[in-house]
Simulated assay, not measured.
Amino acid sequence: MRHLRALCAIADTGSVHKAARQLGMTQPSLTTQLRRIEQAVGGQLFNRERTGSRPTPLGRTVLTRARPIIAEMTELIREAKDAAGLAGAGPGVRLRLGSTGSRAVPGWLRRLHNRLPDTDITFQADVSANTLLRMVAGNQLDAAFVHEVEGSPLRVPDGVELRVLVRREPQFVAVPATHPAARAGRAVAVAELAEERWMVDPSVDGDWDGLRRVFAAAGIDPRVVYGDYLSAGDLVAAGEVVTPCQPTSQPRPGMSIVPLAGDPLGVRLLVGLRTGWGPGAEADAVFDDLRASYEEVARSSPAYARWLSTRRAPGPPVMV
């Protein structure tokens, strides 16, 4: 099962690097595992291309058999836990949530714990929105809070319905606190950052494509380095890079959060729900508590609060 899950993860993410992060492994370890699997089946399962890993004809054949096995095993484990009472509570009182990174998540979970004290609430984080939506479709999650970058639509699988939390959330930029853009107290044009090194996480669905479109529209070709957003803050504070960020991001010593002039980069915030999941009131509670948490962090983020104050009141106008 471990080998089959690894193959599906590589196929689903289109990248050994992304699959390794999803599985909690290092990329070299997953590469070694893939080689062993290919040796066992007697052929190459993926073509390693510049844009990622794509299944070979043999790979597609193996994946066709692997996916039903994984789905059946997942359902078997779920039913066994329900029967044994190992899920922390009986059937119908579990809530399985997932999300890409957001400062709204802790408040969301806190509200749900208060609202549903007898419910066993579990949480899954992943940088890939598409992966989380597939988990909803596969009955591994009940709901997932994800973002969709403009121009890079998510692949919404059958069995998932979407609710729009925010129609358009502008993306800001994190810059060193000593940068002129931070001291100016105004939105900064992308062209003003043409000489900076930009850091982007290519494993986050749509982020790199969206940023490239912004660069092209501004007529610039800045230096780009790849990394993860968890370490980006330290590099920004050290004056090494600038990086796109959510408007709800908080400044920190050495780092400031600045809007981009004209809001050229935006995302849509969505909640993916498993079709037919739970009573309508339960799904409404999940959505309403997330909305309240998002509004809270939006107002507590200095740069975003100022940005919102220039739009119509009351409250964040981007909220549905």
Rank of each mutant, 00 (worst) to 15 (best):
T275D: 08
D228L: 02
P259H: 13
A305H: 12
G151R: 12
D142R: 03
E49R: 15
P314F: 08
T74M: 10
G219I: 04
D201A: 05
Y229T: 12
I37H: 03
M25C: 07
N130P: 03
P117Q: 07
E296V: 13
A89F: 05
A177W: 01
M255F: 04
V297G: 06
G101P: 01
A19T: 08
E49V: 15
I70C: 06
P202C: 12
V127Q: 05
Q246H: 13
R223I: 02
P68G: 08
V242A: 02
A283D: 01
P253W: 05
N47M: 11
L193I: 03
P279L: 10
L45F: 02
I257A: 01
Y226V: 11
L269V: 14
V149I: 15
G315E: 11
E192V: 06
V16L: 13
S203H: 02
V160P: 04
A187H: 09
G315D: 14
R134I: 01
F215G: 00
A237N: 05
A313Y: 06
G272W: 02
A181L: 06
P57D: 08
I77P: 00
V105P: 00
G254M: 07
R197N: 08
T31Y: 09
R54W: 02
L308P: 00
T131S: 11
R103C: 02
V173D: 02
V146F: 14
V318N: 12
P157F: 07
P247E: 07
T131I: 08
R212D: 06
G233D: 13
V160G: 11
P222L: 05
P314G: 09
V173N: 02
R163A: 10
V164A: 07
A261R: 10
A19R: 03
P253G: 12
R35T: 03
V204F: 04
L45V: 01
A305L: 11
L97Q: 03
V160W: 10
A232E: 01
A216E: 14
S309K: 08
V241W: 01
A232K: 00
A71C: 06
H179A: 09
G185P: 04
D221V: 06
A19C: 12
T310Y: 10
T64Q: 14
L193Q: 00
D12M: 07
I10P: 03
M319F: 04
V16P: 00
P157E: 12
D209I: 13
A40C: 08
G107L: 04
A80L: 12
G101F: 15
L95D: 01
A283L: 05
L165S: 13
P316S: 12
G24D: 09
R197W: 08
G101M: 15
L290A: 09
T178D: 14
A189V: 04
P153V: 12
L193D: 00
D288I: 10
S300R: 15
V136R: 05
T243M: 07
S309L: 10
L97V: 04
